[in-house]
Design a protein around this nucleic acid. Structure first.
Length: 129
DNA sequence: TAAGTGACCTATA
DNA sequence: CTATAGGCCACTT
């Protein structure tokens, strides 16, 4: 059981220091939202999610996913080179294949399947083509 | 309190 | 392909 309980620091904030701890929670939720927003048939990298959600590091995305990503499309998140995390490789590629994302060996071609976030598309449209 | 360790990372050589 | 370093965070010693 790990749902909402997170760390001993929760105790100290019962006083009224809701301030700093909240950011943590918001980030957690934001990351989850971004991941949830990746459409089927598309993929994103940990770095992408981190950048869009404002996470300080891609590793944090991995952690959040590991702890609290059971109900999210975690299989649409790949590493920067298009390969999945080692232990999930099999499962992940299989799930992706079911969505029409074909992997070349154990690697997905990001140039084909990479998802572009809404704001990124905006910029691309506004800028040059 | 502080240092060590592991994790679904990434960039560089 | 492997090796190395860099960085962030929670948990354990």
């Amino acid at each position: 059981m790990k749902g909402t309980l997170r760390s001993p620091s929760v105790a100290k904030e019962s006083f009224g220091a809701v301030h700093s701890e909240r950011m943590d929670d918001e980030l957690h939720e934001r990351v989850r939202e971004v991941i949830a927003g990746v459409p089927a048939g598309k993929v994103a990298t940990y770095g992408d999610i981190a950048a869009i959600a404002g996470a300080p590091s891609p590793r944090l995305v991995g952690r959040i996913l590991a702890e609290d990503g059971h109900d999210l499309p975690w299989h649409r998140i790949l590493r920067a080179n298009g390969t999945p995390a080692p232990h999930l490789q099999h499962e992940q590629l299989e799930r992706l294949r079911a969505e029409g994302v074909l992997a070349d060996g154990e690697r997905v071609n990001l140039r084909v399947y990479r998802w572009r976030s809404p704001q990124e598309e905006e910029e691309a449209e506004a800028g040059l083509f």
